[in-house]
Amino acid sequence: MNIIIENMFFGIVISLIAFELGKIIYNKTKLPIFNPLLTSIIIVIVILKIFNIDFELYNKGGQFINMFLGPATVILAVPLYKQLLLLKKNFVPIIIGISIGSVVSVISVILLSTVFNLDKEIIISLIPKSVTTPIGVEISNSLGGITGITVMAVILTGITGAIIAPTVCKIFKINNPVARGIGIGTASHAVGTSKALEIGETEGAMSSLAIGIAGLITVVVAPICLDILTKLL
């Protein structure tokens, strides 16, 4: 048993099996709460706890999955390319929408964290919650945050966005596919984009665009907002 657990492929196999089970559960229920990523995380945690497996042993192989985060994000450019004419037509409102959404995301984290009297290190770790993991981790590291908290914040934000996005669009009668895609991608990065792709091709394309631009804007805005607001508060 120890030989299997200590093998680097153990983490990879467990992760893939957990995600496939998550997909099966989601496809059977079609309930947003059973997002495959959330379900797979819970399955992995349960397995590690039941068999008393150290996270370090699991992560020997599990860490290699992180290598594919960047390429997987780049692949999202494919649906965007198919909607290039729509992008050119709505370029200005798209850029303005993503910019405002990114700035509001950073400022809201800082203000709410300050209200709840969180440590500065925790605040920094939560700031990149709405950008994709590779960019979020780099922002957190550069500002002095805790990588583990950042990753968890990014995952929870993405899953929450994927779950509530259709309901929010319905309640506020957001029917324009460009607006829906930009909103979902700016708020909940790649995980939200997976849901946007389910809603429609245009939504998916705009959401994938928002991931990259929101990441770049957050890289610039995060340290500036943090410095200004910490001085004022």
Score class of each variant (00 low, 15 high):
residue 1 M to G: 11
residue 5 I to M: 02
residue 5 I to H: 06
residue 14 I to F: 07
residue 17 I to C: 13
residue 20 E to G: 13
residue 21 L to A: 08
residue 21 L to R: 01
residue 26 Y to W: 02
residue 27 N to K: 09
residue 30 K to F: 00
residue 34 F to V: 11
residue 34 F to C: 06
residue 37 L to W: 00
residue 38 L to M: 14
residue 39 T to P: 02
residue 40 S to K: 10
residue 45 I to T: 11
residue 46 V to I: 14
residue 46 V to L: 14
residue 47 I to R: 01
residue 47 I to W: 01
residue 48 L to Q: 05
residue 49 K to S: 15
residue 49 K to A: 15
residue 52 N to H: 09
residue 55 F to T: 12
residue 60 K to Q: 14
residue 61 G to C: 12
residue 61 G to H: 11
residue 63 Q to S: 15
residue 64 F to I: 13
residue 65 I to S: 09
residue 69 L to P: 01
residue 70 G to A: 13
residue 72 A to F: 02
residue 72 A to M: 04
residue 74 V to S: 02
residue 75 I to W: 02
residue 75 I to N: 03
residue 76 L to I: 10
residue 77 A to Y: 10
residue 80 L to W: 08
residue 83 Q to R: 04
residue 83 Q to D: 04
residue 87 L to P: 10
residue 88 K to E: 08
residue 89 K to V: 01
residue 92 V to E: 01
residue 93 P to I: 00
residue 93 P to C: 00
residue 96 I to N: 01
residue 100 I to W: 01
residue 104 V to T: 08
residue 110 I to D: 05
residue 114 T to A: 06
residue 116 F to E: 10
residue 117 N to T: 13
residue 119 D to Y: 03
residue 120 K to M: 09
residue 121 E to D: 12
residue 121 E to Y: 01
residue 127 I to R: 02
residue 128 P to A: 11
residue 129 K to M: 12
residue 134 P to E: 13
residue 138 E to A: 13
residue 140 S to A: 11
residue 146 I to E: 05
residue 146 I to N: 08
residue 147 T to V: 14
residue 148 G to I: 10
residue 149 I to D: 02
residue 149 I to N: 10
residue 150 T to I: 03
residue 150 T to M: 00
residue 156 L to A: 15
residue 157 T to M: 12
residue 160 T to D: 09
residue 160 T to S: 15
residue 161 G to E: 05
residue 161 G to K: 05
residue 167 T to Q: 13
residue 170 K to M: 06
residue 170 K to C: 00
residue 171 I to P: 14
residue 171 I to W: 14
residue 172 F to I: 06
residue 175 N to E: 15
residue 175 N to C: 05
residue 176 N to I: 06
residue 178 V to R: 08
residue 181 G to A: 02
residue 182 I to F: 08
residue 183 G to I: 06
residue 186 T to N: 07
residue 188 S to Y: 12
residue 190 A to D: 01
residue 191 V to N: 00
residue 194 S to Q: 04
residue 194 S to L: 10
residue 195 K to P: 12
residue 197 L to V: 14
residue 197 L to P: 11
residue 200 G to C: 07
residue 200 G to D: 13
residue 204 G to F: 06
residue 205 A to Y: 08
residue 208 S to G: 15
residue 208 S to Y: 09
residue 209 L to R: 11
residue 210 A to S: 10
residue 211 I to K: 04
residue 213 I to A: 03
residue 221 V to N: 07
residue 225 C to N: 00
residue 225 C to A: 14
residue 226 L to N: 09
residue 228 I to C: 01
residue 230 T to G: 03
residue 232 L to G: 07
residue 233 L to T: 11
